[in-house]
């Protein structure tokens, strides 16, 4: 049995979420191949081989210069061959490309997959309702299409690296698949200027901030720790902070080493965005708040008193 992973690249190599997906695919006890569409960064094929990928299908051609979900799905389809399962990271592009493939092949697709029970008919476990409920779903079609939830498994090199043979392909793309295509990209720092999704420390603030002026101390704490500021949905919907700072089911999903939510009760919609944090230090007036009971550490009390005190102690120890 062989399975195919749609791998995304960043400037320097293969995206972390794609390497996680490769690690997930290895767990299926199958030969793992991968497909990269467009530019293949130097060393990326070697990186995939280290993670156990047997063949790296590399799709090139004019059609793949600018991003188009439908065209990229054509490349994945061309590489899929007899693959029993096609996997993609649960990123916007991973989900979009996989959905095009699902529609074209008229097969089932599961999103937010966290684990799989391979059998005659594949059964996966996936997150629904923002991760507060799990669903077992059957995917009898071949190929079964799985978008893997972020941090479902950790990326890790394979015990025995594979060869990682690069196979070039230039699939033909139907003109209709190029109609919906990016015509321009405007680099905008504000999209994630603080690096919210990649920061190793995130300080969060919720309704407890009290108003648009209530973020001074939490911003300072984030700065002192070299981290980023994130907020709950209520904060953005009240217009206290911009939407790109929102953590949650309809905002950013974060996975820092340390998350410090201040005055955030921890509703499901917020938890969906921060559940992958390695350590949580909650600051809240309510010891029974879900964010406090789910946290690793907590301080009970008013964030407006506690956070300035922490900032002061940090500055004092630094002299």
């Amino acid at each position: 049995m062989s399975v195919l992973v749609f791998a995304e690249t960043t400037g320097g190599g293969i995206a972390e979420t794609s390497l996680e997906t490769v690690a997930f695919a290895r767990g299926l006890d199958a030969e793992v191949d991968a497909v990269v569409v467009g530019e293949l960064p130097h060393g990326a094929a070697g990186e995939l081989a280290e993670h156990g990928v047997r063949t790296v299908h590399h799709a090139t051609g004019d059609a793949f210069g600018a991003y188009s979900g439908a065209a990229w799905a054509t490349a994945v389809q061309a590489a899929a061959g007899q693959s029993r399962v096609v996997l993609a990271p649960g990123t916007p592009r991973g989900l979009e490309v996989l959905a095009h493939l699902a529609a074209r092949l008229d097969v089932a697709m599961a999103a937010n997959v966290v684990s799989v029970v391979p059998d005659d008919e594949l059964v996966v476990t996936r997150q629904v309702l923002g991760g507060s409920v799990l669903e077992e779903m059957q995917l009898p079609d071949t190929p079964a299409l799985l978008a893997v939830a972020g941090h479902a498994v950790e990326a890790a090199p394979a015990p025995a690296p594979a060869v990682g043979t690069v196979r070039e392909l230039t699939p033909e793309v139907a003109p209709a698949d190029l109609v919906a295509r990016v015509v321009s990209v405007e680099p905008v720092e504000a999209v994630d200027s603080s690096g919210l999704t990649t920061a190793s420390v995130v300080v969060g603030a919720g309704r407890g901030a009290g108003g648009p002026d209530g973020f001074g101390a939490v911003s300072e704490l984030a700065e002192l720790l070299g981290g980023a500021l994130g907020v709950s949905r209520v904060v953005t919907s009240l217009g206290w902070r911009p939407h790109h700072e929102q953590i949650g089911q309809t905002g950013s999903r974060i996975s820092p080493d340390l998350y410090i939510p201040c005055g955030i009760s921890g509703a499901i919609q917020h938890w969906a965005g921060c559940a992958s944090s390695k350590t949580i230090l909650a600051i809240n007036t309510d010891p029974e708040a879900p964010m406090v009971t789910k946290a690793t550490y907590a301080v009970i009390g008013d964030m407006h008193e506690i956070v300035p005190a922490i900032n002061e102690e940090l500055r004092r120890r630094r002299g």
Binding site: A110, E135, Q138
Partner: peptide, 24 residues
């Protein structure tokens, strides 16, 4: 394709309360 829904295993709270108020 739904087989069934299930709730993630309940995690008993293991929170370590470092203290109360600014003294913490």
């Amino acid at each position: 394709g739904r087989v069934r829904l299930l709730l993630p295993p309940a995690q008993p709270s293991t929170v370590d309360v470092l203290g109360e108020g600014p003294q913490a």
